[in-house]
Amino acid sequence: MHIDWAALGQVFGVSLVVTVGLVGIFTLGIVGTSSPSAGGAKASVLARTGAYACYALCAAAVGYGIFLIVG
């Protein structure tokens, strides 16, 4: 019986990296656009720009996901 361990390992690796990466990037976006719970100042322009870049990356990932489903 042939078990394709390589493919399974690949699925595991890719899933882990992509999930953690995407969640991390999206969280950075959230961090960049939100204010501290202590009631400090609103996020700076720089932080906001970075945050929108993060969101754009995530949107691109969703687009790639749709591409995979269609293809």
């Binding site: 953690v20 969640v23 991390g24 999206f26 501290p36 719970s37 202590a38």
Partner: peptide, 14 residues
Amino acid sequence: VATRLTYRLAKGRD
């Protein structure tokens, strides 16, 4: 792992 990471990153946010 993703849950741990996101809680850590967003710590102290509203």
